[in-house]
Design a protein around this nucleic acid. Structure first.
Lengths: 164, 164
DNA sequence: GACCTGGGTTGACATTTTCTACTCAGGGCT
DNA sequence: AGCCCTGAGTAGAAAATGTCAACCCAGGTC
């Protein structure tokens, strides 16, 4: 009775990604890091997060490879560590912009979005200051991908339910 | 002593978006809904989530406008409700694809991604089956937006720190 | 040597999640 | 009518997480 095979929803990169960045504060920490925060106290002050939680989160993100600890020493100060986004962490900007756009569209302040993300191209390109957007597109070049037209297919690492 | 004005990080659409979909399971529920799940039992079976939590999450998502309750009645059954994504919920697909790509890139199964999202264009267009990707681009048409080149600017609804 | 400051750690307490078991409302069967 | 079955939840205790406040620690300043 070979029922219709369904992709195991637990063996999925969305679930794995959420295991890393789905905890409360994690994405907000990454957002602040993208905006230039590097030090413990900076994250703490910007986010108003409790110290031990911030400590735990930073360690988790470092262990996951999203952040990297970098030693530094301010003049006349002892040496300390700060937190820098790895390439893996920088790549989360796409997710964050997607979330920002969604929030702006449906949950914004009545006055409008509070933050606009802009592209700051190199001087050579003519100082672009345009707003950055995230778009869904397919490899064939279709840039309008309506919700009904996307579907999931099993990839090489797929597991199926039912077939143990 | 007009210090450098900084955008209030709490008055931000990312934070607001996360307040709605940042709870554990919320995005996974939306993912299953995008994949066709509609009924309580379906979500429960696919995700292995406890009934009361699922119930709470569904209610939260309905209240937030991500899902909508739709009555239905199977032949020979009493009438029940199923959960359908609203347009607001459908728009989360961008965030989910972004998360999926990130997970595929950094956390995938050694065998490769388990799920590939494809575009299924209308027949008229010639049955596109290409993989769907999410890209960051700016309004000026630059499609390669490296991490260092994005920055946040205050929008119309911005609040600032320090100026009560 | 006493004190200050950034960057944490520790521990008590509160809130959320999770798990298991139970309920509830209809429909069908006998 | 009475009983069982299923989908859709609710109730309550246990486990995990999050918060707050206080403390530590190392170097530099006074």
């Amino acid at each position: 009775m070979e029922a219709q095979r369904r992709i195991d929803p637990v063996n999925c990169s969305v679930a794995r990604a959420l295991a890393v960045v789905g905890e409360r504060w994690s994405l907000l920490i990454v957002r602040e890091a993208l905006d230039g925060a590097r030090r413990f106290g900076e994250f703490k002050a910007r986010l108003g997060i409790a110290g031990n939680l911030l400590s735990t989160r930073l360690n988790t993100l470092v262990a996951a490879g999203v952040l990297r600890r970098v030693p530094y020493q301010d003049p006349g100060e002892r040496h300390r560590f700060e937190y820098e986004l790895t390439e893996q962490g920088l790549d989360l900007r796409i997710t964050l912009v997607a979330l920002l756009e969604w929030g702006d569209k449906y949950l914004a302040d009545p006055q409008g979005p509070s933050v606009i993300v802009r592209h700051q191209a190199a001087e050579g390109d003519g100082a672009c200051e345009e707003q950055v957007r995230v778009v869904l597109e397919c490899s064939a070049g279709h840039t309008h991908v309506p919700p009904q037209s996307i579907h999931r297919t099993p990839g090489p690492g797929a597991r199926f339910l039912g077939s143990s």
